[in-house]
Each structure stands twice: as C-alpha cells, then as structure tokens.
Design a protein around this nucleic acid. Sequence first.
DNA 1: TCGCTTATTGGAAGCGCTTCCAATGTCGCT
DNA 2: AGCGACATTGGAAGCGCTTCCAATAAGCGA
Lengths: 346, 346
Amino acid sequence: MTTKRPTIDDVARLSGVARVTVSRVLNGGPNVRDEVRARVMQAVEALDYKVNPQARSLAGGASRLLAFVFASDPENEPNSYYESALELGALRACLALGYQVLVQNVPQQTPDRQKRVLDLITTQRCEGLILSPPYSDDVPLIEAALAQGCKVVTVSPGGPGRGKADGVGVDDEAGGYDMTRELLRLGHRRFGFIAGLEGHLSADRRLKGFQRALAEQGLGEGDCVVLRGDFTFRSGTHLAPRLLDHPLAPTALVCANDDMAAGVLSAAHARGLSIPQDLSITGFDDAPVAAIVWPPLTTVHQPVKILGQRAVEMLVARLTGANLAPEPVFLELEHAVVSRQTTTAI
Amino acid sequence: MTTKRPTIDDVARLSGVARVTVSRVLNGGPNVRDEVRARVMQAVEALDYKVNPQARSLAGGASRLLAFVFASDPENEPNSYYESALELGALRACLALGYQVLVQNVPQQTPDRQKRVLDLITTQRCEGLILSPPYSDDVPLIEAALAQGCKVVTVSPGGPGRGKADGVGVDDEAGGYDMTRELLRLGHRRFGFIAGLEGHLSADRRLKGFQRALAEQGLGEGDCVVLRGDFTFRSGTHLAPRLLDHPLAPTALVCANDDMAAGVLSAAHARGLSIPQDLSITGFDDAPVAAIVWPPLTTVHQPVKILGQRAVEMLVARLTGANLAPEPVFLELEHAVVSRQTTTAI
DNA sequence: TCGCTTATTGGAAGCGCTTCCAATGTCGCT
DNA sequence: AGCGACATTGGAAGCGCTTCCAATAAGCGA
C-alpha cells in the first residue's frame, strides 16, 4: 500500500540539521548559511521530499490555496468558454508557482452566495480569491474577503470593484468603441446592440463604448435599438426577431459577446438572410465559437486565458510580498478587433 | 482581521462532552447516544462550526479531496467542452457531497505525466482520482494510483482501463453504430469517417460501431474512407479536402466528435457546398457547438455533465464504503442520436 | 582583548483533528 | 447476585509542520 512519504524530520536527519532549519530553507527564510542550505536541498532531492501542505497550513504557514469563483449556471448555460478559459489560465499559472486552485461555481441567484464564497475561503484556508464577473463588482463580497485577510483579484471588473482590489482585464469600453468605429467606417448608420446580463458591468462598458462611438458621429438613441440578453446563444436566437423586424431596420448589430452573436447569426440563417449582406454582426471575446460559425464572426479579441494567468500571478505577487503597492493595481491587457466575415461595407 | 473560527474544542465545551465525542458525531461514528448526538449538533449549529479540513487530514482522517485529471493541451486546443462539462458535473456533485476537487491539466505529451498525477495525489492527499480520456485507459497510471490506496474512476474508458477501476460512460460503439444505421437508413452507401486522436480508445469504439454497421450491410473498406484527426475544429478543416476530393466521393461523413464535424462543415461552406444536400455530416457528443453551427449538426448526444457527476458519486461511494463490490463496476449512461439538419436522405 | 550587536541554529510548544486504548456504565443471562 | 459482552465515553498521543524564543557562534569597534 501507501509507502510512507518522507517527512521534514527525515530531511533534517539526513542533512544533519534541526527540523526548523529545514523549514527555513524550504520557505526561503534568511539566516541560513549557503553551505547548510545546499546540504538541505540535497537531502530534499535525495528523498524526493515534498512538504505536506495540510501540515504546513495547520501550523500556521501558507496554504498555497487559491479560490476561483464563477457564476454561470450550468443548468441554463451549456458551458462558458470565458470561464473555462480563465480557469485554464489560472491552472497553468498555479502549476508554475506551486499553488493550487479550488474552483467554485456559485450561480448568481444563489441566496447565500456571499456566505458560500466566504465559507470556502475560511474553511479551506484559501489565501487568495479570483473573482470573475459579475462577482468582480460585488463590493460587499470583496470587502468581506479582504477583511478576512484574503487577497483578492478581480477579473474584468467594470465598476466599483475596480477600486477595491487588484484587477485584470481589457478596456471593454474601448473594445466596444473600436468595434463600432469599424462598423461606422464601413458606412453603417443604423445599429442594433445586444447587451449582456444586468450587473455585468464590464459588459455594460462595451455598450458605453458603442454609444460613445455613435455619439461622435452625431448618432443617438433614435439610430439604434438596444436589447438585453443573457450571454447565451439561445438569448441571441430569441432576441433576433425583435431586431430583424424592428422598424429601424439596423444594418449592423453589435453583440456583447460571441455566443449571442452566434445566436442571431443562426436565426438569420433560419430566415434565409445572407450574412453579412443583409446584416453585419459582431461579437466580443473571440471565443472559439467565433471562428467556428459560418461565416466566421468579426469580433473583439481578448486574451482570456492570459487574464486567468495574470490573475493568479497578481495574487501570488501580493501573497509573497512581491507587490507592496498600497493601492489596488489594475492590469490592462490588449484587445483587438478581429475582422472576419460577418461584417461588410454598406 | 480574521476572527478566529471555533474549533472542535469549543464545540466540545459548549455541548459538555469530550472532544473525541464531537469528532465521533461529526464523522457519523457509531456508539453515541442520540441525545448526545443532538446536543453536539446543536452546538455545531450555534457556533457555525466547520471542521478544519487540513487538521482532519493531517490527523489521519479523510481529506475529502478528489483529483480530476484531463489531458487537453490548452496551447493547441482552444477549449474543450467535453472536459469542462465533466468538471462542472464533478463540481456539482462535490458540492452536494462535501468534497473538493483539485483540477489538473496534464497535456498528454508531458514527459513525466504519470509522476505529475501521482505527486498530486500523494502530496495533496487526494483520496480519489477521476481520469478522463486518454488517461482512462492508462493502466499503469490507474494501477499506480490504486496501489497508493487512491480510489479511481475512469470516464469513458474504451479498453483495458475498463477492467481495472470503476468507470462511467456511454456505449460509444453503440453510438457509432446507431448514427451509422441512421445514415444507412437514409440511403447512404459511401462514407467518410474522421477518427479521434490515437490512444483515445473510447473514440475508437465509435469507429468500430461505424464499421460494424457498414459490415452488416455488406459494405467494407472499399466503401469508406477513414481519416484521423485530433478532435479539434482545425483538424476538421484540415482534413476536409482529403474527404471532399476523395475519388470515393462519400455522401455521408461520420465524425468522432462535434468539433471536427464543425470543421468539415465550415470547410464545406467555404467551398460553396450545401450541407446536407451535397454531404451529410454527423458529430458526436452533442456539445453546444452542435446546436450553434449552421445548419445545426446531427450528432450523438451523451450526457457529459452527468458523467462527471456520476464519476464523483461513484468515487465517494467507494470512499464511504457505500459500494463494496469486489469487482470494478461500470456505469453505462444512455446516448441518443439527435437528428438535426446536417443529414438528409439521398 | 572585551562587551555588544548580528548571524545562525535549535528546543519547545502548539495548529485542530483523529487514532488507539482504557475506563466506565448497562444489559442479559445463569 | 455475579459475570461477561457490549455500548458509550474520555485521556493521551501524535499527524508534519511552523511559530516564538532562547542559545550559541561570529564579527566588530574601542
């Protein structure tokens, strides 16, 4: 059966020092002679020693545990690229940094969602918390976590979350703006916009950027129809008729994410419309689905996997003291309009 | 800062029993009077006490930690529905059962992949291991984990893995067979098949089912062209020309998963072909992408999220002793052909 | 050369829980 | 009434690690 793993005492014995010294070198403590340090490391190698994280954590050391919380409700949404890409990125970074991440799915309508998250971090002793939208703007949650001494990084905060904790994301407003500028450049003057779920502030910023671009051209509310979806493909198909039959007859449709854009695209196909001749459609995220639908979707790329990776890096920087900035820092990554084949000049 | 959480001693004190008795009721041990048990539970409630999992694990108790290992290489594949759905299902079940799952991504070409997995379970003290393809057929890995006293459940094992550990999956061969029967019923006689990555035995069973269905109709190797992809959309688009230009001129194409089918579909669109008039295409899995592409993809549904859920349930049944079967048990879930719009009679 | 600061090391005490085993109390039966 | 079997409880030890603090060695200026 289970062969017993070597303990810190085995290492201590083999290297001829006290247990506490081994602990010191393992944790990069100061005041250990290089010669001793080397000897200990050698013993660690020889025994293939690995610290027991439970023991370390119990004794008051670092648990090296991070929590990643996301909201999507798996009963309704089939599977969210955004969140699993974030997670994959986080997993990657953790591997390199020696941390573990506990993933928790807390649907937004969960009544005691704040408690669920806080319980996770206290019970499991998580040292860091990664919050994806819409939790990235949940200030009470952020503050409660912070108050417990847990470091927090928000991914794509869109509003107040931004000021309370470190964050990482793209400039969503600029993304919406850039996409819309491109459509304006192509000659479009009558627009549709499908927004995301209420409370997803970063997605609302895409709408803001859209409106700003229109306003710059002297276009206003009369020149666009704004609908609200829930980020799913289905909401795209459901909303499509309201756009397609709207008296304004938009020639271009900007969506707050790719799935909804794909939904409209599908509904348009079902009606026998030609895309982009009859309607230009754009998405946001550059999820795999954007390249998979036909025709491939023009969209705004954001490096989601890297967002996840940076999130844990920022967290770990706080935990190790590598980042001592007194103010929350926000890391803004690049976005880019990716022109594919659902947009055309008018 | 962090308000100290109550410990088991606090509960013991409040309920007027010894620490060990509290431990007993917490772990559902026998030989505790109902009256005492109730009193303890009441104290637990009153204090909002939660056991410290690190301490429990260190003391030799259950860690309630499971590991979920998957292989996809995030550098190449954008994001795999299959694996994230599995994970979501597992997460769900864990929540209900009071377990935690450590997710680990180990690309298949990792040189020391076996060690990576084993280190995870020994270092973190995982009690159970969920293996997704192709690890579900990695017998040395399974046996090594089992030898360490770690329970194992394989998801969609296709071959020998099936005999070594508990498993859950659908009947992939029957799925391939059923799909092909449907195509035969529609009058197709010349076929293409795009297989999955080598070593994914469950996916190979879909090919077996395909071949069996053909053989039953007296069709053989001369009546089909079999290509091997890697489960990605890109491999579908790459392989498409070799099928579309093949002298056999297949009228129906069966793919080992939806992404590859979507790839061929996209390539067909790019060539100006009409699907399904010019070619019937089918996928496997019924991933979200199947409903999103145009036209929506005929495919074989398998309940991936439930697979993940059942996997942890089976694991926990072993861990708690609810399942004492001496032999590995395999749980077979239902699959179903979902006819959408990429298939037509000829 | 001596006292004092600083660098290095180790001893001891737990972290919160479970295990093992001994100590009771209880019951049924002869 | 007396004895063994069993149910119920608690005491003690210790999981593997870190923290705190004391002990020793080394370095330095006067």
